[in-house]
Structure formats: structure tokens, C-alpha cells
Design a protein around this nucleic acid. Structure first.
Lengths: 246, 246
DNA sequence: AAGTGGTCTAGACCACTCT
DNA sequence: GAGTGGTCTAGACCACTTG
């Protein structure tokens, strides 16, 4: 196996289960198991890595806590996916004041362009590299609620077109997994209150100057690689952003 | 011990470690160990409950993940507290665009009144029961950034006065633990964008109508009992609300 | 019945803190 | 050196799913 207790000078200690976790993440990253598929059983993995079941278990436990894997008793352990009913819209915190609140999608725009410096920096690209920009509305009962502006690295999303986006049922992140092999596993958001400018006011059908929630999201895939920069404007008259603090 | 595998009709199964966890939470709630104190060692608890160390371990692991306890290798396991440097402002997600961003507190008001119906309902009190209302500003480099309006049940916070609040160093939640034995362990927030009304505009020193982040927080103590309703108005010109999605 | 994840145990040893 | 939490093992048995 080649485990050891860490490097001579290094961060002093890396337990076996953490190393197993690293190997499993590398396999996910390499696409050895695809989104929604089962990974090998704990006993199989224990045999493969030459450790006990308990050690594999602890590695998988952490990955399940990180939402990288999903355990299902009696069935197996599966690669987490955004394309299933249960966790759909995992990253969307918008809730309606009343009602269930299913949202319709309306695509506004999808085009390729050169990344401006500010976007390139956050996505760790070079300024001028190709990127894809998608703009869309989310509507609740016909009324626009969210205006999204999504920036993606061009090299990872080569075949992305308006048609592909319109064909696909379910959230974008499901499409990104299935068609481009890009899994969003983590994101950070910066939230502010801003007045609607002319364009946002027109698209969201509110007066210019209406306070909107500005949600700037940077999403990461395996290895903390940033792969999406998204700016949402939320009209919070009959919806709110829900957050749980622990 | 009286463990068993659950009731005849009930939710079909309750593992030992979950029962241990329940007993430990009950002890916390009863005040057997106070905020910041050490609880007994894993071996002591295993002996007390008549189970193996591993079972106690799993119970404590979950409670540490829930931020109820803090493990410190070589020292022991401690009751989590809001009154220590490391996790200070655990529930405050406001970040400055640049700089470190230490905040000064300015108390505006602290008075007792009868709870209006809307507040009473959320705090599970009866309308007309006594409550305490605290209002305060948070300032960064002299400029007001947050206007908080805090509602607390009167019966739990009997001796709470302007003086006590002003004397105490550190976050309110530290005071609440030390003086009133009330631990906030979880909260949910509803966030909207709203225009500043006349009073908010005056206190936050912004023009009337300026978009503000409205953060409505309901905080819970052990047993999912709501014990604080807080409404914050955040001026997000040079600060933002930070959120991590997993 | 076979295979999966889930629980529980008992014991060994390691890493860290304090005295 | 003694006491604490942290890791790892091996094995038994339970709960759940599928054939």
C-alpha cells in the first residue's frame, strides 16, 4: 500500500482513512464511477486497499457527510448527483412564502465570448480565454423571481448550446454532470441588497430601484477547482432566501 | 440500561449510540455540565452507560458534528460555547469586502413589553406574555452596518438590563450562556432585500429607500425550543453576507 | 439465501497534553 | 508517566434490499 505516517517534515500525520478518502476522490475525479452509479462495496474496497472494512467505512462516512457519496442500506454506496428528485436544487435556497413553489425555467441567452479579467480571475482562467455565458429567468406561477447570469469555462463546456439547455429536464447541474462530466460539489455565495437597474427591472417586471437580493455564487468541483461563476438577482416580495445556521 | 430495539409500532429502530446521544443531550439541557466545561472521558461514560467506548464515541462524534461538543485531543471533550475566540460570532455571516472587520457594539435600547401575537407565535409563547426587546447597532470603523432588533422570552431572561448588556465583553450569546444558561445551538434565517424606512435610514446613516438586507433569525436551544427572534438590517455597501453551500 | 450497509464489541496501539 | 482523544483491526450480529 505504501501508507506510512506522513513525510518527515510535513504536516505530521495523515491517518489511513484520510488517505483512502483521497484515493476515492481521485477515482471520482478520474470518472471511474459516474454520477448516480454505485461504487464497490465496503468489503471490496477494503480488499483493494488492503485495510479493514472499518477504515474504508470511516473514509466513506466523511465523503457522505461532504455530499460526495450517498449511502443506501442494503443497496450500496452511490456517487451523489444533482439530477435526482430528492436533492434537486440542492444549492437553491429560495423558498416561497406560501405554497410548494415549483419553478419554471426560461432561457434568455447562451453565447460564447472572451472572459473579462474579473471573471477570469475567479474561475482561474486567463483573461481573454473562451467562456460561455448563460442567462435565464426562473418563474413561479408565471411571475419572474430570479434572473441568473452564469459564466462557465469554455474548454469544459464545449458543446453547450441553447438547444441542449432547452431540451434538458431538471436542473442545469444535472446536465453538467451527464453531458460534460462536471460535478459541482461545493459553492460559496456572497449576498447583498441592490437596487434593480433598468434591465433587471424590465426582465423581473419590477420598478427600477426595487431592492433585489444579489447572490454571487462561485462553484467548485473536485480538487477545489472553480468551474462556475453565477450572479443571481432575486425578487424577494413573495420569496425569501432560507439559511440554516449550525 | 433499558435499551431494546424500539417500540412495537414506533419508528422501528433506535441504535444504542443514538440513545446515548439523547441521554447526553438531556444532561446538557439539565445543566449537568456548563458551557466550556469538560464532560467525563469516553471510558467513564462507557462505564456509566454500560456500553463500549466505541459506542460512546459515535454518540459524541455526532454531537461534535452538531456543534454541541468540542473534542480536544489529549485534553477532553468540552461543552461548546459562543464565548470563546475561535468560534466567536458563529452565527454572524457578515464579512467586510476588505480588511479583518472587527465590529463595535452600540446598545440603543433594552425594554420589557408584552409580546405581540406575531412574535409570541414564533417563540411559542402566549400573546401578551412578557418579552425583552433589545435594539443595537454594529459598527465597522465607526460606520453603522447592522441594526438588530432582538426579542427574547421574558421568563428566561429575568435579570437582563441595559447595564448587564453594556458591561459584558464579547457576543450576546456568550452572556446568555453565562448569565441565563441559555445555549443557542441552531438557527434558521429568512433573508430578503428591503428598502430602508425612515428610522432604519436614520440609524444606519443611509438615504431612505436604500436597499438593505433583512435577516430574520429564529434561534433554538436544546429540544428545538425557540428562544430568540432577531431581525437584522444589514447595510451591504462594503460588507456582504457569506454563505457556504455543500 | 446472498449481498449490502449499520451497529456493537474488545483490544491494541498512536498522538497529544499536562504534571 | 498517566490520562485523554484518535486510529485500526477482526469478528459477530442486525437491518434492509434483491433475486
Amino acid at each position: 500500500m505504501g501508507v506510512g505516517t506522513g513525510t518527515i517534515v510535513g504536516p505530521s500525520f495523515s491517518p489511513l482513512y484520510a488517505q483512502i478518502k483521497g484515493l476515492l476522490i481521485a477515482s471520482l475525479q478520474a470518472g471511474e464511477w459516474k454520477a448516480g452509479e454505485a461504487i464497490p462495496s465496503e468489503l471490496d474496497l477494503a480488499a483493494r486497499f488492503g485495510v479493514s472494512q472499518g477504515t474504508v467505512r470511516k473514509a466513506i462516512d466523511e465523503m457522505a457527510a461532504d455530499n460526495l457519496l450517498v449511502r443506501r442500506q442494503g443497496k450500496g454506496t452511490f456517487v451523489a448527483t444533482h439530477a435526482e428528485q430528492k436533492v434537486q436544487y440542492r444549492f437553491l435556497r429560495l423558498m416561497p412564502d406560501e405554497g410548494s413553489g415549483s419553478l419554471e425555467r426560461q432561457l434568455l441567452d447562451c453565447r460564447r465570448l472572451r472572459a473579462p479579467a474579473s471573471v477570469a480571475r475567479q474561475l482561474q482562467m486567463r483573461a481573454g480565454d473562451q467562456m460561455v455565458e448563460v442567462r435565464r429567468l426562473l418563474k413561479a406561477e408565471g411571475k419572474p423571481v430570479v434572473l441568473d447570469d452564469i459564466c462557465l469555462p469554455g474548454d469544459l463546456f464545449k458543446g453547450l448550446t441553447t438547444e441542449r439547455l432547452n431540451q434538458y429536464r431538471g436542473p442545469f447541474y444535472g446536465l453538467f454532470e451527464a453531458e460534460f462530466g462536471v460535478h459541482m460539489i461545493r459553492a460559496q455565495e456572497k449576498i447583498r441588497a441592490l437596487p434593480a437597474d433598468a434591465e433587471a427591472a424590465r426582465l423581473l417586471q419590477v420598478p427600477v430601484g426595487t431592492p433585489l437580493l444579489s447572490v454571487e455564487r462561485l462553484s467548485f468541483t473536485y480538487g477545489d477547482k472553480p468551474v462556475e461563476l453565477r450572479r443571481g438577482l432575486y425578487h424577494t416580495a413573495s420569496h425569501f432566501y432560507r439559511n440554516e445556521l449550525n
